[in-house]
Amino acid sequence: MSSKKSFGGSAIVLDRADINTDEIIPAKYLTEVTKEALTPYILEDLKLDGFDPRGDKLKNASVVVTRANFGCGSSREHAPWVFEVNGVHTVIAESYARIFRQNMFNCGMLAIELPKDDIDQIIALDGEGVINIAVDVEAQKITATANGKTLDFDFEVSPFDKALVAAGGWVEFADARY
């Protein structure tokens, strides 16, 4: 359900575990029948001290860096879509709920898993200024930069998920194969 995406860019840190899809896009907006109509409602009900869903930090972000079990709860693909229409095509987390992770790759977007230590290091950069994340999907490498400080990480992505990203999504992959 998508075209090929570009990855990386400036990041916003959501430093909390178990962020659910109701927080990412509340159910009252699921009455929309286009992805674009979801745009203003991104992360509207997120329970996180100091977070402003209307703030510039989120507006300028192309990457979300977060904690464990991101995207738990409802299966709504509106959660990846609301990221997609807001230009966020990369999420980096300690772990994901199954359906959310698959929905991201099914849309041709990236749900990258990094160990807690790596996430800690990226989040520590948040105090240094704007974090910029470069992603090389083929080499499976991430570079995080903030205020001249640079950190490199390797990540794993399954061959299937990589193929979905390369194809532009599961519809494209499945339509060509089945």
Partner: peptide
Amino acid sequence: AGVGTTDLEV
């Protein structure tokens, strides 16, 4: 299993 809209579409 619950799935997203793209899985449903396929």
